[in-house]
Amino acid sequence: MTLEILKEKQELRDLIDNYAYLSDEWKIAEVMQLFAEDVTYKVYMGGNLVADVSGRDNMERDFNMHAAQVKTYFTLNGQHTVNIDGDTARGISFSQIKMVREVEGKDILSDYSVKCEDYYVKREGKWVIKDRVGHFLIIESRPFNG
C-alpha cells in the first residue's frame, strides 16, 4: 500500500468522522458540504425503504426537519473500509447512533446500529459522499432517565 493510498483512506475516514461530529452538533449546513450537490441518500429500516432523497438542498431540508425533533444526538463510528479507484471510492462504515426525543412529555432514547454503503467522489481535490445507503439494522427505543 502506497503512502498516497494511506493518505486517501485517512481523508475518507475523516469525512465519515466529520459527518458524525457535525451532525451531533446540529451543524447541518456544514454537514451538507460533505455531500456532492447531486447526492442520493436512501435509508432502510427493518429492510423497508423509509427515505429516498436526491440533491443536497432536499437533503438539507429533510435533515433540518429531523433535527428539530431531536434533543440530543450521539454518534460513535466503528469500522470503515474503502476501495479507492482514482477519484472515486466505495466504502462501508458502521455506526451506533443515539437520539433523545420527547414523546408525549417523556424523553425517549432511540439506539440505532447502522451500516452505511457509500460511493465517494473527489471533486476539486476534496472527497465528498455522492451516494449513501443507510441500513438501520437494529433499532431500540426506551425511556431515557438521563
Rank of each mutant, 00 (worst) to 15 (best):
D24V: 03
Y119Q: 13
D52P: 02
M99T: 08
M32P: 01
V114M: 06
S110P: 05
A89Q: 05
S93H: 06
W26M: 09
F94W: 11
M1K: 10
K42A: 12
I28Y: 01
Q79D: 06
L3D: 04
W127E: 02
Y112H: 10
H66F: 13
A29V: 04
S95Q: 14
V82A: 13
R142T: 03
L76E: 11
L34S: 07
Q79G: 09
I84T: 10
T88K: 13
Y41A: 11
D57Y: 03
M99L: 15
V82E: 12
R101K: 15
G105V: 06
I28R: 06
D85P: 02
L12T: 07
D87F: 02
R123D: 12
N58K: 13
N64M: 09
E140T: 05
S110C: 11
K122I: 06
I16C: 13
D118T: 12
T72C: 08
N83H: 11
N83G: 10
V31Y: 02
Y73W: 14
V39T: 13
Q33E: 15
N145H: 14
A51M: 14
E104N: 15
A36Q: 00
D131H: 15
W26C: 08
G46E: 06
V133Q: 14
G47T: 07
V53L: 07
G86L: 08
S95Y: 06
D111L: 04
V39M: 11
Y44W: 04
V114K: 00
G46D: 06
V50Q: 05
D14N: 14
D24R: 00
N145Q: 11
V39A: 04
T88V: 14
L12W: 03
I97Y: 01
A51W: 00
S23K: 10
E60G: 10
Y120T: 03
D118S: 09
G78K: 00
A36E: 04
K115V: 13
D14M: 08
A67H: 13
L15N: 05
E30D: 15
F74T: 04
I92W: 10
M1T: 09
G134Q: 12
V128A: 02
Y44L: 09
R61F: 05
D107G: 09
K9S: 15
V39Y: 02
I28H: 00
V39E: 05
D118Q: 12
R61E: 05
T75K: 01
D87E: 15
E60L: 07
Q69P: 00
G78V: 09
G78W: 01
C116F: 10
T88W: 00
R123P: 02
V43L: 08
M59K: 02
